[in-house]
Design a protein around this nucleic acid. Sequence first.
DNA 1: GTGGTCTAGACCACA
DNA 2: GTGGTCTAGACCACA
Lengths: 125, 125, 125, 125
Amino acid sequence: MIQIDWQSRVPVYEQLMQGILRLKNLGVLAPDDQLPSVRALASQTGVNPNTVQKAYQMLETKGIIYSVTGRGSFLSAGADADETILNEAKERLARAAREAAQMGLSKAAALELLAAVYEERGKSE
Amino acid sequence: MIQIDWQSRVPVYEQLMQGILRLKNLGVLAPDDQLPSVRALASQTGVNPNTVQKAYQMLETKGIIYSVTGRGSFLSAGADADETILNEAKERLARAAREAAQMGLSKAAALELLAAVYEERGKSE
Amino acid sequence: MIQIDWQSRVPVYEQLMQGILRLKNLGVLAPDDQLPSVRALASQTGVNPNTVQKAYQMLETKGIIYSVTGRGSFLSAGADADETILNEAKERLARAAREAAQMGLSKAAALELLAAVYEERGKSE
Amino acid sequence: MIQIDWQSRVPVYEQLMQGILRLKNLGVLAPDDQLPSVRALASQTGVNPNTVQKAYQMLETKGIIYSVTGRGSFLSAGADADETILNEAKERLARAAREAAQMGLSKAAALELLAAVYEERGKSE
DNA sequence: GTGGTCTAGACCACA
DNA sequence: GTGGTCTAGACCACA
């Protein structure tokens, strides 16, 4: 189930993309599994169909899913896409770490914060 | 010297704020030191004066700098003045870590990446 | 055997049409030979019967096949029946060439690429 | 100047993308040159701003341009992007050639068609 | 002014 | 029903 946080600064279409990626990483969605249709996910989440469409299309550009007109959208098989995504996530993490360090965050504090994030994950899933 | 990355998604005014905080953390700027004038910093960085003005105003709101009419802007003394900024940086780091974890980054890999970031800092500055 | 590429942007009904024309051009299907029934071809390829029906109807409109009620569909005799199809293919090829040229593909490189395509065909069939 | 062919089956946003790429390849647009604003290009071509936005965003995804909120959109410097685009164009050309060959287009006819395309280009530009 | 996001709603090809 | 394109129009952050 994909939850939209309407208060978040993160664009809705990005939340949708992350939601799909999460379901993939959790194994809920397997390669070649069909995704909910654009309209179905839209009404399910309360998001406008155009916004869901945008999310799906960006996922397709990234090679995470593929869409066939008249048939639906499906999860791609390729592991390549995953690696690209992971690398992007690592890049963003490194950049955030560099900025935080520049703002005066000590190494110890940074490591502690990271540990806390993984701790909270362990509990929720 | 403050460098603006024009291709970055980080707003220019935020880059300016971070730049000044960096100079502070590096000790280049000491409490009560005078900052460059809005115009000077603008022409130096190629940024629109309005944008520099906005950065200075936000720094002042946060208590990191203070301005004296007719004289200019100066660095505040308070050591904990930039707490909000630090908190924002931590927030961003935590979010990036959560996303990376969701994309499959292991805790060990995350810690290693963080260590590498601090390592590289130690060398360059 | 007709293969459907489900990931292709080319509509399934068009792939079916091309597949039948290919069998004709290869001599696998001779004039007045009977084509597989809509149902047979559908289950064989995994395509929806409606879609096979559409392909057969368009082939009939173009005079490439003819159907006899109660008996089935047969390949037409006319050698130039598929002229429209050929023209469409030429049109697509010309458009692709124009676009490639615009993206900087030299004439020599284009001719070489074309030669390579025909070369590879000579070997495989 | 970018012309939209409203009769064409090619989506408007793709025509816009091709138009920008053409201007780049012709040297009309140089690296770091500013593109017309979304709204300007929209009113100039009679296209809806959203559609122009879509074209710009896809060009940014492909690394052809970069956009900075509040400042505008600019042509990227990288030659990498060009190569990717060229390769895609070559792929499409090869696929079109294969299909045409399968439809019975002789090698001689294909080469002639290609020559004609380059001939017509020589005249118009 | 400049790009970016989102909704509402229409229309099309395809299955 | 399913994805894809497009218009119209609103609203936001940023420069």
